[in-house]
Write a protein that binds this DNA or RNA. Structure first.
Lengths: 119, 119
DNA sequence: TTTAATACATCGTTATACAATGTATTATTT
DNA sequence: AAATAATACATTGTATAACGATGTATTAAA
């Protein structure tokens, strides 16, 4: 009976979990640009930043390809910074184009959110 | 010179256009459930409803597979309704499980949106 | 000495929006 | 009357992107 209950719960959460992933797909580039707009970060640091300040949990296999995409679109640039000890860090900076895109994205999201309020 | 300008503009919008698609990917199931929560619809009608009330433009090849998915997850049920003339219409209704998921989704979105405000 | 944490990266799988295409019926235009 | 558009259903193939799994290398902690 207990395991049956767990089973039912998991079934129900399956949809929500999947949906959450898809929602993230859309919002993640926005949150990344926004985070880097406030302060330059290196990839590994960004994962923590997103978790702490936005509550979004992403893995390295999500964040690194995303950063590469944003670089290819020229919304970001990067700079290697060597450390006193350990592996050098790859810091990412938002470009002017990145900033203008960020504003546009924010406008889009706010427009959509208003439509939710209307109901 | 003119065409160069157009070219540059399109380049810039390429990212935003793609991003918009990804954002839609996450929000569409929510908007569909919300629309059907207010009033039952048939597929073709839902496309118009989404455009008119939410401003989201989707094609039939997006909406029909989505409705099938939501049925499989038991968030929707359907009922064929014959017309005086023409092809019978497949009306979709939200289930109790659909309603509870809709609430959960709304909560998730609102949580995320708050985090945007914090900046 | 081993394990965990930091920091980079890639590959394969899965989910899903969308263009293209198809079928069938009715309404409108030529 | 014939051709076109609109309505209404549906499927197939392609492209995008998150994520698990895996890999390399360095440093800190157990």
């Amino acid at each position: 009976m207990y395991y049956f209950f767990i089973y039912i719960c998991n079934m129900k959460n399956e949809f929500l979990k999947n949906w959450d992933t898809q929602l993230k797909k859309g919002l993640l580039p926005f949150f990344v640009l926004q985070a880097l707009n406030q302060k330059e970060c290196y990839g590994y640091e960004l994962i923590q930043t997103l978790k702490d300040s936005v509550g979004i949990e992403v893995t390295e296999s999500t964040i690194y390809p995303l950063l590469i995409r944003l670089m290819k679109d020229e919304l970001l640039i990067h700079k290697w910074v060597e450390q006193q000890s350990g592996i050098p860090r790859k810091y990412y900076f938002i470009t002017e184009e990145g900033k203008s895109n960020l504003l546009e994205m924010k406008k889009n999201i706010e427009e959509m959110m208003q439509k939710i309020e209307i109901k």
